[in-house]
Design a protein around this nucleic acid. Structure first.
Length: 429
DNA sequence: TCTGGGGTCCTAGGACCC
DNA sequence: TCTGGGGTCCTAGGACCC
């Protein structure tokens, strides 16, 4: 299809990035363990079975849009015999790990971009081998873990995204070489470029830019005068000049845990119990990445689809950097009492941010009592038990004891195929 | 009746300081 | 009626992504 002619002599130090992603990832995960579902229309539902958040090709072809509320399509889904599943994130997370390990074994330099997507730095491969490499990735992942993937390789991350788009379209691995960039962009609508959303598409169109090529051929000064730094970077990337590099640190800059409730929650203590639970698991994630947080953000919201008296309360608390659940809980209690008003709440959540690494932590004179060594040890033990056994087996006694009053609804959950032995056995019956 | 969750980056505007 | 000019830091909110 495309050949790496002259590249090795012409651009000896050129970069190459691959973007690999699982096709219809969540749907494919369900199909791996239940092959009867292959070539069937299947949909994955969000928490509370509210929206359709992933679709197999067959469901896409039926015209069911992404993110649509399920209740609006109930009749249609039934009449077309669509198989629906509640999102089984522990299954998808486990399959994701396997996919990433497979990719790492082929190209060690990897950035995990999302649950189903990774960038690989392929610069160490000579251009003449990129086609072979793309093919190898394209074949190995489905062979090893059963998930089909799209593979695109190009001189920049933005172009790799585009190459991946062509990979999906033509159902083959796809490489964009530096001297073929313009050809690849010629008929690509500007809205399909990574980073160009609704608002930017409108602005671009107003300036006479309709394809990626239209933007590509503008000169730097023209772009600088009309756009912010985001679009200037994007423009460079489209021209094959890499400005976005591989980010290999897996650590997050913020951690958010939030949920919508099956039924609205009006009781103050039930709602606080939910907030405590979210906080508990957020702080657990914080410890897993060995960070301390200095900012806690909590929010509670009524149903945003009910016009009229929508209420959204939130508070941000600065605290001495910590990873101790009890410290967060104390602050959360004060904030919660501040923002709570009698309403029926539909959603609540917490966000942790302003992280420092626990390794860099140097207690100052005033803070040196902040991290209690005994408590640190105890927390570590609890985290380990929760990691190796079922989730949330152990914890602070006051957290989650009212859970039955705010829990989520997941009626169509598939078995935990990869983590529960009983379910592994079931597959073979 | 029923409408997801978790991220990143950038910008504008206010507070404060010299 | 007059009401500096920058700089920095912080936060709220927008835009975008998966």
């Amino acid at each position: 299809m495309n050949h790496p002619k002259n590249l090795s002599t012409k651009y000896p130090s050129r970069k190459a990035y691959a973007l690999v992603d699982g096709n219809n990832f969540f749907a494919s995960c369900e199909q791996v363990f239940n092959p009867k579902l292959l070539r069937k229309p299947i949909g994955i539902l969000s928490n509370n079975d509210g929206c359709i958040i992933a679709r197999s090709n067959e469901l896409k072809q039926l015209g069911v849009p992404m993110g649509t509320p399920k209740f609006k399509w109930n009749k249609f889904l039934q009449s077309h015999d669509v198989h629906l599943f509640s999102a089984n994130f522990s299954l998808y997370g486990d399959m994701s790990k396997r996919m990433m390990m497979t990719l790492t074994s082929i190209v060690p330099s990897i950035e995990i971009y999302s649950i189903d997507e990774a960038f690989l730095d392929c610069s160490m491969f000579p251009p003449s081998e990129l086609n072979k490499l793309a093919t190898r990735i394209y074949q190995t992942v489905p062979r090893w873990i059963g998930i089909p993937v799209g593979v695109g390789i190009a001189p920049t991350k933005v172009l790799a995204k585009i190459a991946n788009h062509f990979s999906k379209k033509h159902q083959c691995p796809f490489v964009i070489y530096f001297d073929k960039i313009a050809d690849s962009l010629r008929d690509l609508p500007i809205k399909d470029v990574w980073g160009i959303g609704r608002r930017l598409t409108k602005k671009m169109n107003a300036l006479g830019i309709f394809t990626a090529y239209d933007f590509y051929k503008k000169d730097e000064e023209w772009v600088k005068q009309r756009f912010s730094i985001i679009e200037q970077k994007l423009h460079k990337e489209l021209q094959g000049k890499p400005v976005l590099h591989l980010n290999r640190t897996a650590n997050k800059k913020s951690i958010c845990v939030s949920r919508s409730f099956e039924k609205s929650v009006s009781h103050k203590e039930y709602l606080f119990d939910a907030v405590s639970c979210f906080l508990n698991s957020a702080v657990e994630k914080l410890r897993r990445q060995e960070s301390l947080a200095g900012l806690l953000h909590i929010f509670i919201q009524t149903n945003r689809f009910h016009k009229g008296n929508y209420y959204s309360g939130m508070d941000i608390i600065r605290l001495t950097h910590t990873n101790e659940t009890s410290q967060f809980l104390q602050s959360a209690r004060r904030s919660f009492d501040k923002i709570w008003k009698p309403h029926s709440y539909k959603r609540a959540g917490v966000i942790l941010s302003d992280f420092i690494s626990i390794k860099d932590y140097q207690p100052t004179f005033f803070e040196n009592e902040n991290l209690n060594p005994k408590l640190q040890k105890l927390q570590k033990t609890i985290d380990t038990i929760n990691k190796t056994h079922a989730k949330q087996q152990m914890g602070i006694a006051s957290v989650g004891h009212l859970m039955k009053n705010w829990k989520m609804n997941r009626k169509n959950l598939s078995p935990a195929y990869t983590t529960r032995i009983e379910d592994l056995i079931k597959i073979h019956i």
